[in-house]
Nucleic acid binder design. Structure first.
Lengths: 356, 356
DNA sequence: GTTAGCACTCATTATTGTGGAGTGCTAATA
DNA sequence: TATTAGCACTCCACAATAATGAGTGCTAAC
């Protein structure tokens, strides 16, 4: 059996209706809903075929049909193709998007000193806008290069190391010391560190570290070792993935997700964040879908989200750092809106971050 | 009518039983549960009295009794008094606590570089340990005094200001500049800032700021203004309250809280965090209850927690910074355990933070 | 003052019944 | 041959009803 054009139209109608209502949709509804003038009986026949083909299913004998994962997949793929063709040329929608982003910027510009807050806010705004749960990761770099280090006295027994990496990633680290150190010693140490370490990646540093220590042996060897260790440690942790989530409670808006067990599991994964790393897409098939991935039901990499759909987007900043935005909702989520929103956000984010 | 000793014992028995089971408790249960040898009929009479006195209530005519807020209050107050007397002298319990804290330290020592992570972890461990939702605030200072400022070049058009306050609170701020600045200029600026600002609170600073600017007028006035503004701004934000929560999904373990609406509201407040500021206790009645507050039902300052009980503890670090830990659970929470745990945590926290 | 006994109440659970939405099938129609 | 009208059938959802049982209040006896 073939999936001819009429079947496709009926299938889309079923899915669209189900996205709106969340209720199984019957033949009579379709017969009136669509512009193809067909009686409910005909629709019924077609729907029986669609069921045989695996696109829809009926939850029980005398109910309407709901889409299967396969059905959603077809629908989403089709939509993504259209999106690609259109390239958002439809005026009304573009205007809408613009406005949306504008209002988003307004909300974001409130008080965003730190990247952290901005990302948290993006998650929040996105959640409010879409009525789904959202997540966003901090931008990641590949090889963190050291730009400079700055040591200063904090107390008699403590040093403050300010570590700046390429891309102006800044970290502070308090180092406890035993040796008493003069102001001059500190100055020397600063110079030594910066001349020998700047521009190095973490890997190169471990090697450079040993050499430096050999050359400089004698005074304050223990101290230097401590300081180097602290720096290396800090850099290693600097690019650890931070994940921000928001709108977890939005899932209660969808009855199919809000029974106690499912909700609890879902919210737990969102709160715990750990397993969300599974969503950061390794390779983004940039070409076909502009860094946007749609996972439907079982396709998602996270077990607790088998009853959800997840849409992720990869954003990329001008300096090459990449991050992931994710939207988690019911399988009957408004894919069109979500994909559209993510498309614009992912391109706007760079500008937002630059502005801070 | 009086609340004689027998009534009190029965009341306690009712509450204890209800804490365990969460079910209304009947006269027969009490008759067997307690060591006072009384028939169910007698208990019934007493319970009728207790109801009249407002300590217990029956959800419907032929059900057992459950404690009212007033009942809980009596129970908790009584317990707190006992605690105060005992001063945790019971060996078994103390040993338990020790072990608990020990295992907590183990979990915490894993990888805690930053205070932020430590606090987040405390919340997490506490939630896991108690099976309730938890929150913890960052330690707060009253008047933030500046220790020193350190400016360095980040890019041609950006300065990095490292701002260190008393108590070694460290903040970074990137400042965008228009003027081109020589290395010497920067050095001068650093000296100027540190000689005129060190040891000042935020309030004093605004005044000092103006004077400094007047004295130094001429070169780079705009720049100085920008830098000062950035510093003031940073300090102002430095002591903004950060709140960490964990274990929100624990509430699903208690049927009386896990219906969709209540759960959603509760988790939302925990996720949003904003309104949790209502829990940071202004004045802690240190004397009577060692900085521990118990809010039962309507007593809690937060609307969405009317069906919960909240126990808060104030912790204080050696350098005088204070913070709040809170535990949010059902009204039938295990007050004894919670209070005990908080008592030990709040004293241990200082040590944990020092260790980092 | 305490207790045994009994009638009564009312939430909970199971049982049954009914209405309606929606289907599949068949026969008639274009 | 494709479409449609008609009808019997299925099964969920919901309401009404009945059965169960835990627990009470009250009274009378101890």
């Amino acid at each position: 059996m073939e999936l001819d054009d009429r079947k496709l139209r009926i299938l889309k109608a079923v899915i669209q209706n189900y996205l709106e209502t969340g209720e199984p949709v019957g033949s009579r509804t379709i017969s009136k809903y669509t512009d193809l003038k067909l009686s409910s009986a005909t629709i019924r026949n077609e729907m029986a075929d669609l069921e045989e083909l695996g696109y829809i299913i009926q939850p029980h004998t005398s109910a309407g049909r709901i889409p299967t994962d396969k059905g959603y997949r077809l629908y989403v793929d089709d939509m993504m193709n259209q999106k690609a063709e259109e390239l958002s040329t439809r005026e009304a929608e573009v205007a809408d998007r613009e406005k949306e982003v504008e209002s988003m910027k307004d909300m974001l510009s409130e008080k965003v000193d730190r990247v952290e807050e901005l990302l948290q806010n993006v998650a929040k705004v996105l959640a409010k806008d879409t009525n789904y749960a959202t997540m966003i990761t901090s931008p990641q770099v590949k090889g963190n290069k050291l730009k400079f280090v700055q040591l200063s006295f904090l107390d008699e027994d403590k040093l403050l190391a300010v570590i700046v990496m390429e891309g102006n990633l800044i970290r502070n680290k308090v180092i406890r010391i035993q040796d008493t150190l003069s102001q001059e010693d500190l100055l020397k140490l600063n110079i030594l560190l910066n001349t020998s370490l700047n521009g190095l990646t973490l890997e190169q540093m471990s090697i450079a570290m040993v050499k430096t220590m050999e050359n400089q042996a004698g005074e304050h060897v223990g101290l230097i070792k401590d300081v180097l260790e602290a720096i290396v440690d800090t850099i290693r942790n600097a690019d650890d993935l931070k994940i921000y989530t928001s709108g977890a409670t939005n899932i209660f808006k969808y009855p199919e997700l809000s029974d106690s067990n499912k909700a609890s599991e879902l919210i737990y994964t969102l709160e715990e964040k750990q397993s969300l790393t599974g969503l950061v897409s390794e390779e983004s098939d940039e070409a076909s879908n502009q860094g946007i991935q749609v996972y439907i039901g079982n396709e998602t990499p996270i077990d607790t989200m088998k009853d959800c759909s997840v849409v992720t987007a990869t954003y990329e900043l001008q300096d090459g750092m990449k991050g992931t935005i994710g939207i988690i909702g019911p399988k009957r989520m408004d894919y069109e809106k979500v994909v559209g929103t993510l498309q614009t956000i992912r391109t706007q984010l760079d500008g937002m971050l630059k502005k801070t």
